[in-house]
Protein backbone atom coordinates (compact mmCIF):
# COMPACT_ATOMS: atom_id res chain seq x y z
CA UNK A 1 0.00 0.00 0.00
CA UNK A 2 2.96 2.25 0.75
CA UNK A 3 4.01 2.43 -2.90
CA UNK A 4 0.56 3.32 -4.19
CA UNK A 5 0.12 6.01 -1.52
CA UNK A 6 3.51 7.33 -2.63
CA UNK A 7 2.19 7.42 -6.21
CA UNK A 8 -0.90 9.38 -5.13
CA UNK A 9 1.22 11.90 -3.23
CA UNK A 10 3.68 12.26 -6.11
CA UNK A 11 0.87 12.83 -8.61
CA UNK A 12 -0.73 15.44 -6.32
CA UNK A 13 2.46 17.31 -5.47
CA UNK A 14 1.83 20.13 -7.94
CA UNK A 15 -1.75 20.67 -6.78
CA UNK A 16 -0.75 20.47 -3.12
CA UNK A 17 2.00 23.02 -3.71
CA UNK A 18 -0.42 25.35 -5.50
CA UNK A 19 -3.16 25.14 -2.85
CA UNK A 20 -0.53 25.34 -0.11
CA UNK A 21 0.80 28.57 -1.62
CA UNK A 22 -2.70 30.08 -1.89
CA UNK A 23 -3.37 28.95 1.69
CA UNK A 24 -0.17 30.67 2.86
CA UNK A 25 -1.20 33.91 1.13
CA UNK A 26 -4.72 33.67 2.63
CA UNK A 27 -3.42 33.02 6.13
CA UNK A 28 -1.00 35.95 5.96
CA UNK A 29 -3.81 38.23 4.75
CA UNK A 30 -6.23 36.96 7.41
CA UNK A 31 -3.67 37.41 10.17
CA UNK A 32 -2.88 40.93 8.91
CA UNK A 33 -6.61 41.74 9.01
CA UNK A 34 -6.81 40.33 12.56
CA UNK A 35 -3.78 42.38 13.61
CA UNK A 36 -5.31 45.45 12.05
CA UNK A 37 -8.52 44.77 13.99
CA UNK A 38 -6.56 44.90 17.23
CA UNK A 39 -3.81 47.39 16.55
CA UNK A 40 -4.25 48.96 13.12
CA UNK A 41 -6.69 50.98 11.03
CA UNK A 42 -9.66 48.66 11.54
CA UNK A 43 -9.30 49.01 15.34
CA UNK A 44 -10.17 52.70 14.96
CA UNK A 45 -13.34 51.99 12.95
CA UNK A 46 -15.68 50.67 15.64
CA UNK A 47 -18.56 49.80 13.33
CA UNK A 48 -16.43 47.93 10.81
CA UNK A 49 -14.51 46.21 13.59
CA UNK A 50 -17.79 45.16 15.20
CA UNK A 51 -18.98 43.58 11.95
CA UNK A 52 -15.69 41.75 11.55
CA UNK A 53 -15.74 40.51 15.16
CA UNK A 54 -19.27 39.14 14.56
CA UNK A 55 -18.04 37.40 11.44
CA UNK A 56 -14.66 36.17 12.59
CA UNK A 57 -15.63 32.74 11.26
CA UNK A 58 -14.82 33.98 7.76
CA UNK A 59 -11.24 34.67 8.82
CA UNK A 60 -11.11 31.41 10.75
CA UNK A 61 -12.35 29.00 8.12
CA UNK A 62 -11.80 30.63 4.73
CA UNK A 63 -8.22 29.27 4.31
CA UNK A 64 -9.53 25.75 5.00
CA UNK A 65 -11.67 25.87 1.86
CA UNK A 66 -8.52 26.33 -0.22
CA UNK A 67 -6.43 23.70 1.50
CA UNK A 68 -9.21 21.08 1.60
CA UNK A 69 -8.69 20.39 -2.11
CA UNK A 70 -4.93 20.00 -1.96
CA UNK A 71 -5.52 16.34 -2.76
CA UNK A 72 -8.39 15.43 -5.02
CA UNK A 73 -8.73 11.67 -5.61
CA UNK A 74 -10.87 12.17 -8.71
CA UNK A 75 -7.95 14.00 -10.34
CA UNK A 76 -5.56 11.11 -9.71
CA UNK A 77 -8.26 8.70 -10.86
CA UNK A 78 -8.29 10.40 -14.26
CA UNK A 79 -4.49 10.37 -14.21
CA UNK A 80 -4.73 6.59 -13.77
CA UNK A 81 -7.26 6.27 -16.57
CA UNK A 82 -5.55 8.60 -19.05
CA UNK A 83 -2.07 7.16 -18.53
CA UNK A 84 -3.32 3.59 -19.02
CA UNK A 85 -2.43 2.66 -15.43
CA UNK A 86 -5.97 1.53 -14.67
CA UNK A 87 -5.87 -0.80 -17.71
CA UNK A 88 -2.44 -1.99 -16.58
CA UNK A 89 -3.78 -2.75 -13.07
CA UNK A 90 -6.56 -4.80 -14.63
CA UNK A 91 -3.96 -7.02 -16.31
CA UNK A 92 -2.42 -7.78 -12.90
CA UNK A 93 -3.80 -9.46 -9.80
CA UNK A 94 -3.94 -6.07 -8.06
CA UNK A 95 -7.46 -5.48 -6.78
CA UNK A 96 -9.31 -2.36 -7.84
CA UNK A 97 -10.74 -2.24 -4.30
CA UNK A 98 -7.19 -1.52 -3.18
CA UNK A 99 -6.75 1.09 -5.89
CA UNK A 100 -9.78 2.98 -4.56
CA UNK A 101 -8.91 2.17 -0.93
CA UNK A 102 -5.48 3.76 -1.40
CA UNK A 103 -7.12 6.93 -2.68
CA UNK A 104 -9.43 7.03 0.35
CA UNK A 105 -6.50 6.49 2.75
CA UNK A 106 -4.46 9.18 0.98
CA UNK A 107 -7.44 11.52 1.27
CA UNK A 108 -7.59 10.81 5.01
CA UNK A 109 -3.85 11.46 5.36
CA UNK A 110 -4.12 14.75 3.48
CA UNK A 111 -7.25 15.90 5.31
CA UNK A 112 -5.67 15.03 8.67
CA UNK A 113 -2.76 17.23 7.66
CA UNK A 114 -5.17 19.94 6.52
CA UNK A 115 -6.98 19.73 9.87
CA UNK A 116 -3.70 19.93 11.81
CA UNK A 117 -2.40 22.91 9.80
CA UNK A 118 -5.72 24.72 10.15
CA UNK A 119 -5.78 24.06 13.90
CA UNK A 120 -2.34 25.68 14.13
CA UNK A 121 -3.63 28.58 12.07
CA UNK A 122 -6.63 28.94 14.42
CA UNK A 123 -4.26 28.97 17.38
CA UNK A 124 -2.14 31.64 15.71
CA UNK A 125 -5.20 33.72 14.83
CA UNK A 126 -6.49 33.34 18.41
CA UNK A 127 -3.12 34.37 19.84
CA UNK A 128 -2.96 37.44 17.61
CA UNK A 129 -6.51 38.41 18.58
CA UNK A 130 -5.95 37.60 22.24
CA UNK A 131 -9.00 35.31 22.48
CA UNK A 132 -6.99 32.07 22.33
CA UNK A 133 -8.36 28.92 20.69
CA UNK A 134 -11.85 27.71 21.53
CA UNK A 135 -12.82 24.03 21.43
CA UNK A 136 -15.96 25.02 19.51
CA UNK A 137 -13.80 26.49 16.72
CA UNK A 138 -11.77 23.29 16.47
CA UNK A 139 -15.00 21.31 16.46
CA UNK A 140 -16.36 23.41 13.57
CA UNK A 141 -13.05 22.98 11.77
CA UNK A 142 -13.31 19.22 12.20
CA UNK A 143 -16.86 19.13 10.85
CA UNK A 144 -15.86 21.24 7.88
CA UNK A 145 -12.88 18.97 7.18
CA UNK A 146 -15.16 15.92 7.25
CA UNK A 147 -17.59 17.76 4.95
CA UNK A 148 -14.79 18.40 2.43
CA UNK A 149 -13.78 14.75 2.71
CA UNK A 150 -17.35 13.84 1.76
CA UNK A 151 -17.24 16.21 -1.24
CA UNK A 152 -13.95 14.64 -2.37
CA UNK A 153 -15.37 11.14 -1.93
CA UNK A 154 -18.42 12.10 -3.94
CA UNK A 155 -16.21 13.44 -6.72
CA UNK A 156 -14.18 10.22 -6.62
CA UNK A 157 -17.35 8.19 -7.04
CA UNK A 158 -18.48 10.35 -9.97
CA UNK A 159 -15.10 9.72 -11.62
CA UNK A 160 -15.81 5.97 -11.51
CA UNK A 161 -19.15 6.53 -13.26
CA UNK A 162 -18.26 9.21 -15.80
CA UNK A 163 -16.80 7.87 -19.03
CA UNK A 164 -14.14 10.59 -19.32
CA UNK A 165 -13.05 13.92 -17.87
CA UNK A 166 -15.57 15.86 -19.99
CA UNK A 167 -18.44 13.70 -18.74
CA UNK A 168 -17.15 14.10 -15.18
CA UNK A 169 -17.14 17.89 -15.52
CA UNK A 170 -20.60 17.81 -17.10
CA UNK A 171 -21.96 15.83 -14.13
CA UNK A 172 -20.39 18.28 -11.67
CA UNK A 173 -21.75 21.32 -13.52
CA UNK A 174 -25.21 19.72 -13.69
CA UNK A 175 -25.12 18.90 -9.96
CA UNK A 176 -24.06 22.44 -9.02
CA UNK A 177 -26.72 23.92 -11.34
CA UNK A 178 -29.43 21.70 -9.86
CA UNK A 179 -28.33 22.69 -6.35
CA UNK A 180 -28.44 26.36 -7.33
CA UNK A 181 -31.92 25.91 -8.82
CA UNK A 182 -33.10 24.13 -5.67
CA UNK A 183 -31.54 26.85 -3.52
CA UNK A 184 -33.21 29.75 -5.39
CA UNK A 185 -36.67 29.60 -3.66
CA UNK A 186 -34.88 29.49 -0.28
CA UNK A 187 -32.81 32.50 -1.22
CA UNK A 188 -35.87 34.39 -2.54
CA UNK A 189 -37.66 33.68 0.75
CA UNK A 190 -34.71 35.05 2.69
CA UNK A 191 -34.54 38.20 0.59
CA UNK A 192 -38.22 38.79 1.18
CA UNK A 193 -37.91 38.08 4.90
CA UNK A 194 -34.85 40.25 5.48
CA UNK A 195 -35.70 42.93 2.98
CA UNK A 196 -33.69 46.10 3.60
CA UNK A 197 -31.02 44.57 5.80
CA UNK A 198 -27.30 44.43 4.98
CA UNK A 199 -25.63 41.21 3.86
CA UNK A 200 -23.79 40.89 7.17
CA UNK A 201 -27.05 41.27 9.12
CA UNK A 202 -28.61 38.57 6.97
CA UNK A 203 -25.69 36.24 7.70
CA UNK A 204 -26.09 36.89 11.44
CA UNK A 205 -29.82 36.24 11.34
CA UNK A 206 -29.36 33.19 9.17
CA UNK A 207 -26.83 31.80 11.60
CA UNK A 208 -29.29 32.21 14.47
CA UNK A 209 -32.07 30.63 12.46
CA UNK A 210 -29.97 27.65 11.42
CA UNK A 211 -28.48 27.11 14.91
CA UNK A 212 -31.01 24.41 15.96
CA UNK A 213 -30.16 22.40 12.86
CA UNK A 214 -26.42 22.44 13.52
CA UNK A 215 -26.67 19.52 15.96
CA UNK A 216 -27.55 17.28 13.01
CA UNK A 217 -24.51 18.33 11.01
CA UNK A 218 -22.00 16.18 12.86
CA UNK A 219 -23.88 12.86 12.69
CA UNK A 220 -24.86 13.63 9.11
CA UNK A 221 -21.24 14.25 8.16
CA UNK A 222 -20.17 10.98 9.78
CA UNK A 223 -22.93 9.03 8.02
CA UNK A 224 -22.10 10.66 4.67
CA UNK A 225 -18.39 10.02 5.16
CA UNK A 226 -18.81 6.32 5.99
CA UNK A 227 -21.30 5.93 3.12
CA UNK A 228 -18.88 7.68 0.77
CA UNK A 229 -16.03 5.34 1.71
CA UNK A 230 -18.17 2.20 1.35
CA UNK A 231 -19.77 3.41 -1.89
CA UNK A 232 -16.38 4.02 -3.48
CA UNK A 233 -14.72 0.82 -2.32
CA UNK A 234 -17.58 -1.56 -3.08
CA UNK A 235 -19.55 0.09 -5.89
CA UNK A 236 -16.91 2.38 -7.46
CA UNK A 237 -14.40 -0.45 -7.87
CA UNK A 238 -17.04 -2.63 -9.56
CA UNK A 239 -17.85 0.20 -11.96
CA UNK A 240 -14.16 0.53 -12.77
CA UNK A 241 -13.92 -3.20 -13.42
CA UNK A 242 -16.82 -2.98 -15.86
CA UNK A 243 -15.22 -0.13 -17.73
CA UNK A 244 -13.87 -1.73 -20.91
CA UNK A 245 -10.21 -1.04 -21.57
Amino acid sequence: MKGMIYKEITLSRKQAFMTGSIFAIFTVLCILVRLSMEYGNIADDTEWRGHLIDNLWILRYLPLVVLAFSYNPSVTMYDDIDSGFLRFCKTTSYSLNYLIGVKVITLLIFETGVFAVNTLYLALLGTVGGEGIAFSSVSVLFKMTVFFCVINLLMLFISTIAKNKKAFEAILVTAVTLLAVAYTPFLMGLMEKYNGRTDIDILDLLRLELAPMLKYVQPLCVVLFVSGVLLNIFVGSKLLERREG
Binding site: K2, G3, M4, Y6, L11, D80, F85, T92
Partner: peptide, 16 residues
Protein backbone atom coordinates in the same frame (compact mmCIF):
# COMPACT_ATOMS: atom_id res chain seq x y z
CA UNK B 1 2.15 8.21 -15.38
CA UNK B 2 4.34 10.72 -17.20
CA UNK B 3 5.11 12.48 -13.90
CA UNK B 4 6.80 9.41 -12.38
CA UNK B 5 10.44 8.42 -12.79
CA UNK B 6 11.82 4.91 -13.32
CA UNK B 7 13.01 4.86 -9.71
CA UNK B 8 9.61 5.93 -8.36
CA UNK B 9 7.93 3.35 -10.56
CA UNK B 10 9.77 0.59 -8.74
CA UNK B 11 8.25 1.71 -5.42
CA UNK B 12 4.78 1.75 -6.97
CA UNK B 13 5.08 -1.62 -8.71
CA UNK B 14 6.39 -3.28 -5.56
CA UNK B 15 2.81 -2.83 -4.33
CA UNK B 16 1.21 -4.13 -7.51
Amino acid sequence: HNQLTAAQLSTVLADV
